[in-house]
């Protein structure tokens, strides 16, 4: 079963006179894990926000699970979003809620049958990221790496078919970065998700993805496996592998 579940064609997005994305094309097959590399400010976050409908693309089409994102109304969009997990660049934990409440939040629309079941789901999610002891802490009491891990647990709590990670390892030390990258890989295998990982950390891309795409100046400039890209002659691609 090698069906394509994410399909981006000629995606274009600008903010006023600032042309961020000019022509992005990408296809992701089921079960695949694609890393998107690019310099800071090339519009990686913009791209991934277009994919979930947080930003509206100017031109081009985005198909996810066979549906065209720009054609969907709010209900349709929510229907798709149910199947998507999103790890934000800043983890985006709700400051006023405890870790437990943060994890329970996405379940509001799909309440489990009993309090016990809810508890079990939350505990399992925290167990996955080895943070059981933080359950009653506030986000402000956590370190950057812990926040990312809680964010990861929260985005996986509905067992999504598709995962988007926005720079999961940025701002973390190399050891924690590696830990998070491994965690992503592990979750991918455990729940069999299809993922897009945005990053400028080649190491993370190497560990957690099986295909890589480099974007620069609003277009994809290279595509391939880690091995293929590391031999690339293009200086913008090479820069990542030095």
């Amino acid at each position: 079963m090698e069906s394509i579940i994410i399909e981006i064609e000629h995606l274009k997005k600008s903010f006023g006179s600032n042309k961020v994305l000019t022509d992005i094309n990408l296809q992701v097959k089921k079960g695949e894990s694609v890393a998107i590399l690019g310099k800071s400010g090339t519009g990686k976050s913009v791209l991934i926000k277009c994919l979930v409908g947080l930003l509206e693309a100017d031109k081009g089409s985005i198909g996810i699970l066979g549906k065209n994102i720009s054609d969907l109304d709010e209900n349709g969009l929510n229907e798709i979003r149910k199947k998507i997990g999103f790890l934000f660049q800043s983890a985006a934990l709700y400051d006023s809620l405890t870790v437990r409440e943060n994890l329970e939040f996405p379940l509001r629309n799909f309440p489990p049958k009993s309090e016990d079941e809810l508890n079990a789901i939350v505990l399992e999610a925290l167990q996955n990221v080895n943070l059981k002891e933080a359950i009653d802490k506030m986000p402000s009491e956590l370190s950057g790496g812990m926040r990312k891990r809680v964010g990861l647990a929260r985005s996986l709590i509905l067992k999504p078919e598709i995962m988007f990670y926005d720079e999961p390892t940025t701002g973390l030390d190399p050891i924690t970065s590696k830990e998070i990258s491994r965690l992503i890989l592990e979750m991918q295998r455990k729940y069999n998700t299809t993922s897009i990982i945005i990053t400028h950390d080649v190491e993370c891309a190497r560990i957690a993805s099986n295909r890589m795409v480099v974007i620069d100046d609003g277009v994809c400039i290279a595509e391939g496996t880690f091995k293929e890209l590391s031999k690339s002659e293009n200086k913008n691609v090479k820069a990542f592998f030095e």
Binding site: K49, Q89, Y94, D95, N109
Partner: peptide
């Protein structure tokens, strides 16, 4: 800090 975006993505 993208909390509003996160809410929207989780369908709330």
């Amino acid at each position: 800090t993208e909390q509003i975006d996160a809410m929207e993505v989780s369908g709330i």
